[in-house]
Simulated assay, not measured.
Amino acid sequence: MRIGEVAAEAGVSTRVLRYYEEQQLLTSTRTPAGHREYGSAAVERVQLIQLLYEAGLSSRSIRALLPSVEAGEATPEVLQLLAAERRRMEQRIAGLLTARDRLEDVIEAAVDPHHDCVQRARTR
């Protein structure tokens, strides 16, 4: 399959496919004219890569996980890496929740100059 065909079937741009190749997540061969050609499993691999990105994984983590995930073999190392990614994500979520709460205080203070957070800020 040519790059445009894979991109269309996988629902991504050709630029994304080139990026995946740069990141060593996807491979292609070249025709004598220099065009990229992908194997029959390329569309499924691209869709799996997309899913892993949507799960918040970095290209480095995806590169490490991809062979095991495709084979359906969850090695202890793979499970350890996924657990570490989940912990990292939980920390980010906690930080975002704290930021949201602070923003809520700011919104309330914007409409009420006597709001508790304004009073705390004045006493600092």
Results as ranks from 00 to 15, higher is better:
Ser13Lys: 03
Glu108Tyr: 02
His115Thr: 09
Pro113Gly: 09
Met1Ala: 11
Glu104Trp: 07
Tyr19Met: 15
Arg86Ile: 09
Val16Cys: 14
Val78Asp: 00
Ser68Trp: 01
Arg60Phe: 03
Leu65Phe: 05
Ala110Leu: 04
Glu90Gln: 15
Ala10Glu: 00
Leu57Lys: 09
Ile49Leu: 08
Leu97Asn: 11
Gln23Arg: 15
His114Arg: 01
Leu103Phe: 08
Ala41Arg: 07
Ala41Glu: 14
Arg88Ile: 03
Arg88His: 13
Leu17Cys: 11
Pro76Val: 03
Gln47Glu: 15
Tyr20Thr: 14
Ala71His: 08
Ala121Lys: 02
Gly72Pro: 10
Arg36Cys: 00
Arg87His: 07
Asp112His: 07
His114Thr: 02
Gln50Pro: 02
Arg102Gln: 12
Arg18Tyr: 09
Ala33Trp: 08
Leu57Asp: 10
Thr27His: 09
Arg36Thr: 00
Val118Ile: 10
Arg2Lys: 08
Asp116Leu: 11
Val16His: 03
Leu79Lys: 15
Ile107Ser: 05
Leu97Asp: 14
Ile49His: 10
Ser61Gln: 15
Ser59Arg: 09
Glu85Gly: 06
Ala109Asp: 04
Arg36Gly: 01
Ala109Met: 04
Ala109Tyr: 02
Ala33Val: 07
Arg60Leu: 08
Leu97Tyr: 01
His35Ile: 01
Leu26Arg: 02
Gly56Tyr: 12
Arg18Ala: 13
Ser40Arg: 05
Gln80Ile: 02
Asp116His: 07
Leu57Gly: 12
Gly56Lys: 15
Pro76Asp: 03
Val78Lys: 09
Arg2Leu: 14
Leu51Ile: 05
Gln23Cys: 15
Leu103Gly: 05
Thr31Tyr: 06
Glu73Asp: 13
Arg92Asn: 04
Ile107Tyr: 02
Glu54Phe: 14
Val69Tyr: 06
Arg86Met: 04
Ser58Val: 07
Ser58Tyr: 13
Met1His: 12
Ala41Asp: 15
Val78Gln: 12
Gln119Ser: 13
Arg45Ala: 05
Tyr38Asn: 00
Ala110Cys: 07
Glu21Asn: 11
Glu22Tyr: 03
His115Pro: 00
Ser13Tyr: 02
Leu25Ala: 11
Leu51Met: 13
Ala84Lys: 11
Arg45Lys: 13
His35Thr: 06
His115Met: 05
Ser58Asp: 06
Thr75Val: 10
Ile3Gly: 01
Leu81Tyr: 04
Ser40Val: 12
Ala83Gln: 14
Arg18Val: 04
Leu103Cys: 11
Glu73Pro: 01
Ala99Trp: 05
Ala109Phe: 00
Met1Arg: 09
His114Ile: 00
Leu48Tyr: 04
Tyr38Leu: 06
Tyr20Arg: 11
His35Arg: 12
Glu90Pro: 04
Gly72Glu: 10
Glu21Lys: 00
Glu5Ser: 00
Met1Asn: 03
Arg92Thr: 09
Val118Phe: 04
Leu96Trp: 07
Leu66Met: 05
Arg60Trp: 05
Arg88Met: 07
Tyr53Ile: 15
Leu17His: 10
Leu103Tyr: 12
Ala8Cys: 06
Glu77Ser: 09
Val6Cys: 12
Pro76Glu: 10
Gly4Thr: 08
Thr75Lys: 08
Thr29Ala: 12
Gln47Lys: 13
Ala42Pro: 01
Arg87Cys: 03
Ala42His: 02
Val78Ser: 15
Thr29Phe: 08
Gln119His: 05
Glu22Cys: 10
Arg86Thr: 13
Arg30Val: 00
Ala42Asp: 03
Thr27Ser: 13
Leu66Trp: 05
Ser40His: 12
Leu26Ala: 00
Ser61Leu: 11
Glu85His: 15
